[in-house]
Simulated scan of single mutants.
Amino acid sequence: MRVDFTKMHGLGNDFVVLDARATPLPAMTPALAKGIADRRTGIGCDQLIVLEPSDSADFRMRIYNCDGGEVGACGNASRAVALLHGVDANVETAGGIIRVQPGDGGASVDMGEPRFVWDAIPLAYPMDTLTMPVGWDGLDAPGAVNVGNPHVIFFVADTDAVPLDQIGPQIENDPLFPERVNVNVATIVDRSRIRLRVWERGAGLTRACGTGACATAVHAMRRGIVDREVTVTLPGGDLRIAWHADNRIEMTGPATESFRGTFEWDDFV
């Protein structure tokens, strides 16, 4: 079975998009997703995106990290899919329904409402998620936010000085986080700008993480150290994050189509 794909990226966070809305595909499996995502023997991507029909929205977006695990949300992929779809749409994800609006060279995405209660992150036991009484190797007193995916956020003097490739896996897999966690280290530049690096659950160090930018911005806003609209600068570029009075998060940023191709489905089964 020959299958079409579109390769896209948002600030260097790259995706293989499979469109199964009109013509169904065989069932996706973790091993198949991992094989397609492999950068040496597959097509190569941080996340595999599968678009499907939906009973509750214009279409459904399923998201698989490069380790084969399915996750609830991906902000950068949402902008890429918005660009590919071409018109405003409601999109069903495992983390809830989001609203995408394509624009000039990118998109705005209504990422929904953040969740702060400990069991919505989820954490293994109750604690205050605004200032958590935990730490790892000099990183301490983080906050936690769920924006479709679980995130833990540390504010540091210099985000580039943190050995995130070493400490990220340790925190991601700590028993405190029963579904693992995305690890964000951020530096507050001023009330309108944040610098951010992210260790992404199931994908590792990434050039950009849309949900991480949303979680970090909202956590900083919740602590009162930035304004309600900020620019988050990641290694791949800038995202604009606003937390509106209705409690919904809006993310705006670029997305790009890289190329299109086909592959033989059975090559990865």
Rank of each mutant, 00 (worst) to 15 (best):
I97S: 02
L139S: 10
G103R: 06
M61I: 10
G105I: 04
F155S: 12
E70N: 11
A94C: 06
G103Q: 08
T129I: 00
P122V: 01
L130W: 06
S54W: 11
T41Q: 15
D58T: 07
P133A: 08
Q166K: 13
P142E: 01
E92G: 03
V71D: 06
V162L: 08
A89K: 05
R39W: 07
F155L: 13
V145D: 01
M61C: 11
D165W: 08
V71S: 06
A124G: 12
P102D: 13
R115W: 12
F116R: 09
Q166Y: 09
G106Y: 03
D38V: 01
V81Y: 03
E92N: 04
G112T: 01
D160N: 15
R99A: 15
R62Y: 11
R115N: 13
P102M: 10
E92K: 01
I98T: 02
D67K: 04
C66I: 00
D55Y: 07
M61S: 12
A141L: 13
I49C: 10
G112K: 02
D160M: 14
D140P: 00
V50M: 05
L130H: 11
E52P: 04
M127K: 01
G69A: 15
A144R: 00
P133W: 04
A57G: 08
R60T: 06
R79E: 06
V71Y: 02
N146D: 12
S56H: 14
V152I: 10
V87G: 01
P150Q: 10
G42D: 06
P114Q: 11
E113N: 14
C74M: 11
T131A: 14
S78F: 01
I121H: 01
P163M: 10
Y125C: 13
L164S: 07
R40M: 12
M127R: 05
R79F: 03
V50K: 05
A107I: 07
F59W: 04
G44I: 00
G96S: 13
V81P: 04
M111S: 08
R99C: 12
V117T: 14
A73G: 08
P53N: 09
T93L: 01
L130P: 00
G168Q: 12
G143P: 02
L164G: 09
R39T: 06
V145L: 00
V134F: 10
V81H: 05
V134P: 03
R99S: 15
V162E: 09
S78H: 02
V152F: 02
A82Y: 04
V162H: 07
G106S: 09
V81I: 11
C66Y: 00
